[in-house]
């Protein structure tokens, strides 16, 4: 039994590292957007389009990193569109997000038909296996550079929100548009850039899906990762460092179902497979309260008002 426990524990650790990266990028992007006072639910579409364009460009150019860049740029175009539309009066950012989600996935499926078959060059992992002796851990420590970039980005964002002028401006815009305007900040412009940058990150998250793990492009590639990432931001309390933890937790929960079955526990696997969603809901219920507004919540955000 203890063997089985170790296997499941290691599998969940490895799963956390493997599966978390797209969640991490999308949630960091969404965190930035939401800090500026907007919510972009369309990142699911951005993620899928990013995955498609990364695979397509990697195949056409022969370089996976060019693919990653293309995914980021495509993502920032979706973000820019969202940012530009939402500055119009009476337009709901949530609704635009849902529309962008539909449009992004549809467009990606449309353009991506021709790239399901070809094999594109994939991203390589950094092998940190020499650090440990356990063979299972050796494999778990073959980690994609994007994971480390994501970690570094989280730290930079966390530090930046607190200590830089740009961070301050973004936070101020998100907390009170009136104050920001009084300080001479162009609220629309800040939100435009925050959404564009957020889209870039979501696109890169998609590139990870198609170019590393699971590492192929097809229409079933994303099973709602982009949407879940939006939920992650809320229970990370808009803290980039907490986003890392949330993404890892979500990745580990996703590995639970297959890991349990691999050691012979298969009763009720449907529920283990839904573990990430059940867990997210449970955490949201446990940590929300109607008595006080959420700590760290940007005051301008439509979903927390």
């Amino acid at each position: 039994m203890s063997d089985a426990l170790t296997t499941v524990a290691v599998a969940m650790f490895a799963g956390a590292v493997r599966v978390s990266t797209p969640f991490l990028f999308v949630s960091l992007g969404e965190c930035l957007t939401e800090k500026s006072g907007r919510i972009n639910l369309g990142l699911e579409g951005t993620l899928v389009f990013g995955a498609m364009s990364a695979y397509a460009i990697s195949y056409l150019s022969g370089s996976p990193w060019v693919g990653v860049l293309a995914a980021g740029l495509a993502g920032s175009m979706f973000g820019a569109l969202h940012g530009a539309i939402c500055r119009l009066p009476k337009v709901s950012d949530i609704a635009i997000g849902i529309a962008m989600m539909l449009f992004g996935t549809g467009f990606a499926f449309f353009l991506g038909k021709g790239f399901i078959q070809p094999t594109a060059p994939r991203l390589q992992a950094i092998d940190l296996g020499f650090l440990v002796s356990d063979p299972q851990m050796k494999v778990a420590l073959q980690i994609n550079p994007l994971f480390f970039i994501g970690l570094a980005l989280a730290v930079v964002m966390w530090w930046g929100f607190a200590n830089t002028r740009i961070g301050l401006v973004v936070r101020m815009t998100g907390d009170s548009a009136t104050t920001a305007r009084a300080m001479g900040v162009s609220v629309d412009l800040v939100r435009f850039f925050a959404t564009t940058a957020g889209g870039f990150l979501a696109g890169v998250g998609g590139a990870f899906l198609s170019l590393f793990y699971p590492g192929s492009w097809n229409e079933g590639l994303s099973s709602g990762q982009g949407l879940m990432a939006v939920a992650l931001v809320i229970f990370s309390r808009w803290n980039p460092i907490a986003c890392v933890g949330a993404a890892l937790l979500f990745g580990a929960a996703g590995a639970l179902g297959p890991a349990l079955q691999s050691v012979g526990i298969s009763q009720g696997y449907h529920f283990f497979n839904a573990a990430p969603h059940i867990l997210t809901l449970a955490i949201m219920i446990a940590t929300s309260s109607s008595k006080r507004s959420l700590k760290g919540a940007p005051g301008e955000l439509s979903i927390t008002k």
């Binding site: 939006v230 809320i234 969603h277 949201m284 927390t304």
Partner: peptide, 30 residues
């Protein structure tokens, strides 16, 4: 109700509940 008593965002909660509904359906039907 979650929105009312715990201020849980209804957009995301209802989406998460969708995945749970699918798990319930599949569990019983299979």
């Amino acid at each position: 109700w979650l929105r009312h008593v715990r201020a849980v965002n209804e957009t995301i909660a209802s989406l998460l509940m969708f995945y749970i509904a699918v798990a319930i359906l599949n569990f019983f039907v299979e």
